[in-house]
């Protein structure tokens, strides 16, 4: 299981780094919103992997909060971008 945990951690770290380059490079705020959503999914996957590796359910409520946060984040950024485009 340790090998699996290291492998999954490496894959998720690379995915997070690639997502971060998209957040930094943009070019538009909606690109960043989409990339932030993916980064949040990567973080959720990492926390779930940690819980699976140590058989410890302490972090599971955090997953629920993060799932809600990702939705609220991208919807509010989308509304903000749509309103700004009217001007």
């Amino acid at each position: 299981m340790t090998v699996v945990a290291v492998l999954v951690a490496t894959l998720l770290a690379v995915a997070g780094a690639l997502t971060l380059t998209r957040i930094i490079r943009g070019p538009s705020i909606l690109d960043r919103a989409v990339a932030t959503d993916v980064l949040l999914a990567v973080v959720v996957a990492a926390i779930a992997t940690e819980a699976a590796y140590s058989r410890d359910a302490t972090a599971l409520p955090v997953l629920v909060v993060l799932a809600v946060l990702g939705f609220v984040g991208s919807v509010s950024v989308a509304r903000f971008a749509a309103r700004r485009n009217v001007k």
Binding site: L11, L12, A15, A41
Partner: peptide, 10 residues
């Protein structure tokens, strides 16, 4: 699942 996340990042 980690591989699919990596695919999304790429």
């Amino acid at each position: 699942g980690a591989l699919l996340s990596l695919a999304a990042g790429v």
